[in-house]
């Protein structure tokens, strides 16, 4: 049991690697579902760095998801740019936007911060609709090509599945590294008590902006992956509802744990596969899940799992 606890990630890696040829049956649909799961894991984990660690609320994280998706979409579909360069350009623009709005916005607290981030999301969506000549506006951006690197195109769903999950591992791994580093500890201090943090020489504003930029870059990466998978972008996919969905994943999985929000994303994105009869009620279900989680399981799914793990170990040690 103890060994299982230590090597769970190898089992997880094997599962991810072997899923398409076994359970997935190389099917486009099944790998598609897991591609979405992967993209949302990146979004949830990126938001966790900002909210769970730096303690800064964002109800507009889809803004950076949108920037990544549209920069990738526009540069590759309209200007024939290399997808890799477009992806990097998207991250750079997202990072720049986060850096630019970060100082003034993150000086706000609580409801005001929530409203400001919400407004940012709305501004981005409005810009996408308004700049029709560039983004295709409300009718959408067509013909985003498949992702490719020089000499190889990820035009097959299974190939793309591996690309997305490689990115997921990269983002989750680096987020865990950041969270456990002295930088992550500094964010926790700011989250805990800004005044006390300042008396130890922590420049809170600067650290919050850094966390925001990193978080925005990851969300942008998710956007680029989304654009190349869908091939078609519409502003609806990047509204405040998407931001709130990411928030639900965070709380469902267990905020401030990195793995928790990833788990929340898996749960919330797989759930409709089993309950597709009720898809008209998806919003309602999200709301109910959020309330139940907040009231009855404040540590989320991850908290429940670690609780079970501790209990099992306590028993086996006896």
């Amino acid at each position: 049991m103890r060994r299982l606890g230590r090597y769970w990630w190898i089992i997880l890696l094997l599962f991810i690697a072997l899923y398409p040829p076994t359970l997935g049956g190389m099917s486009a649909y099944k790998s598609g579902v897991l591609i979405f799961v992967g993209i949302y894991i990146i979004l949830a984990v990126s938001l966790d760095l900002l909210m769970g660690f730096a303690g800064q609320i964002s109800v507009g994280h889809a803004a950076f998801f949108a920037i990544g998706a549209y920069v990738s979409g526009i540069l590759t579909a309209k200007y024939g740019a290399s997808p890799v360069l477009a992806l990097i350009a998207g991250m750079a623009l997202s990072g720049a936007v986060a850096w630019g709005v970060g100082r003034p916005v993150l000086a706000l607290k609580e409801y005001y911060l929530a409203m400001a981030t919400l407004a940012l999301n709305e501004i981005i969506v409005t810009l996408i609709i308004g700049l029709q000549w560039l983004t295709g506006g409300a009718s959408g951006l067509r013909d985003v090509p498949a992702f490719s690197v020089p000499g190889f195109s990820f035009d097959n769903h299974v190939h793309y599945y591996y690309l997305v999950w490689a990115m997921v591992l990269l983002v989750v791994g680096s987020s865990v590294a950041v969270a456990r580093s002295p930088f992550g500890r500094t964010l926790i201090a700011i989250h805990s008590d800004e005044t006390a943090a300042k008396t130890f020489g922590i420049d809170c504003a600067r650290y919050k902006v850094r966390a925001y930029v990193l978080s925005a870059c990851y969300a942008s990466l998710a956007g680029s992956l989304f654009a190349h998978y869908m091939g078609f972008l519409a502003p609806d996919d990047f509204g405040v509802m998407t931001s709130i969905n990411i928030l639900v994943m965070l709380y469902l999985g267990g905020i401030g744990t990195i793995y928790g929000p990833a788990l929340g994303a898996v749960f919330l994105k797989l759930l409709p596969e089993f309950t597709y009869q009720f898809q008209d009620y998806e919003l309602l279900m999200n709301g109910i899940i959020l309330i139940v989680v907040l009231v009855f399981m404040p540590r989320g799914l991850f908290g429940i799992l670690t609780g079970i793990k501790e209990r099992v170990f306590a028993r086996s040690a006896r």
Binding site: F183, G184, A189, F200
Partner: peptide, 17 residues
């Protein structure tokens, strides 16, 4: 206690990654 040493570490994202 380790947070008390912030000014000695000056941690960065690059340092973490």
């Amino acid at each position: 206690v380790m947070l008390g040493a912030h000014k000695l570490l000056k941690p960065t994202i690059c340092g973490a990654l």
